[in-house]
Design a protein around this nucleic acid. Sequence first.
DNA 1: GCCGTTTTCGGCCCGACTGTTTTCAGTCG
Length: 590
Amino acid sequence: MATNAEIAACFEELAVLSEILGANVFKVNAFRRAARAVEGLAQEAASVPVAALKEIDGLGASTAAKIHEFGASGTMSELEELRAQVPAGLKEVLAIQGIGPKTARAMWQELGVVDLATLKVAIDAGKVATLPRMGEKSIAKMKEAIAFAESARGRIRLGEAMPLADALVAELGALSGVQRIAYAGSLRRGRDTIGDLDILAAASDPAELMRAFCERGEVARVLGHGETKSSVLTKSGVQVDLRVVPLDRFGAALMYFTGSKDHNIRMRERAIAQGLRLNEYGLFREGAHGEVPDGAVPIAAATEEEVYAALGLDWIPPTAREDRGELDQFARGARESRVAGASAVRMLALADIRAELHCHTRASDGSMTIDEIVAEAERRGFHTIAITDHSKSQFQANGLDETRLRAHIEAIHAARERFPKMQIWAGSEVDILSDGSLDYADDVLAALDWVVASPHAALKQEPRLATDRLMKAITHPLVHVIGHPTGRIVNGRPGLEPVMSELYAAAKEHGTALELNSHHMRLDLRDVHVRAAADAGCMIAINCDVHAINDFDELRYGVLTAERGLLPVAQCLNALDAKALDAWRRKKRP
DNA sequence: GCCGTTTTCGGCCCGACTGTTTTCAGTCG
């Protein structure tokens, strides 16, 4: 089975290796774009016909052929050729901050550096200092960067980055002279992991803000410190970039620093096609020689909306800025025809969520009582809560056997008297065992109001087995939702890799919802899955998998992921009103 | 390698910062 992740990794490696070999930078970029195009694909790329692949932005004849070659043989011949030429360890050398393709290539070909170990030896022997433009400071920086790389933590999870960014924005925003401040980058786009934090500010005294930023107690090292741009490394190992721009250019800058890089490139190309130039200071009219004259006044710059509008676009939500066709989708005319036609669709927003359908009490591995959970759901304006403690196979999570479960159902139903306004369901998060059977017999499941079926063990199963396993649960007449369908942990484990298209079709046919688990460790389904499932007509349940009171706050990550998946509000179970949700539930209880 | 409202070749986004330079190459985002 050739997964999109594997194919994307091949294109990324092709980019890195050809970069070291000194290939045309545009060819290198083309490989990188192909990697991202495959990553963002909802279907399995290897099963898409060549002609259809070539229609996808960023893929062409050559990359489409490579995708099929990988599907058939498990590798790409051009990649194998490059691997034979370039020492494998050079990839980790190129990954060091400050070392680019030119430097890596020179160190390899002239000094015999083949990996981090030989690089360190070459530095200590004074050989690196013999290369052109390689002075004392460069060497010192390189040493620091190597030390950091050896202890680095890589990309951090959305749910770790967001609280850091919120705190930083609040702290810097409180300084006098700060007129506006916001986080940008992949965090604002809601990606499941974040490489570094990008903070954008407008301030009456930029130098003073820069100084305050670099001297914070949290800062371990200052990577760069300029008049408008500084980068620091925090003690927790996170890189934070701060950029300061004039207030009247804030929108253009926010757009630029939100990215994605590919989205920005599309926007600049669009500007050029209209005789305009776009940069982080605004949208400008070109001078006589295609240049922007010094001191030119921008056509648009203060807000993102006006920049998009000046280029004939509606404001594009950050979550959609991934170069996946959004410029066509948000073109002015396109939207009018969308709205005019019957196909006008409203996308999901945080305030639409009115139910939590997956949570755990002290009966299994949660920390709250039934009443505490229901009270919190009510406080948050929800109309429905489903209590779904673990089933008996989850020993480590204190899963309930049949006897305890029957008592628990009674206790949950008894809570209805104390919370008359809430719709309270007695449910279970039933294990989908490795063969696809469920952890309780049908008569037990039938006694429950609500059944979430989830895979917890055997998460390294072969794709075919995993598909069959999940299909059994999806087609089971008593199952309402498949919980965290792949079982992946962000930055932890990949989880199952079933043939998703089969799952979507079955889920639609059998009226079973698929969960988007909001917990930042899971975010499962992930964004591209949500998009494909929504296109296939599935219902999606966005749940927090609540174990403790603060877990309700994870919802923002689930909703960001749903936005990235372009989930229409009508296809989100948790956005139905209480009556409609109950009617949907009863379809599984004949 | 991709792409086309100057189309099948000749382009390909743009600016800040750093260090080693006396005007800029390399790297990054």
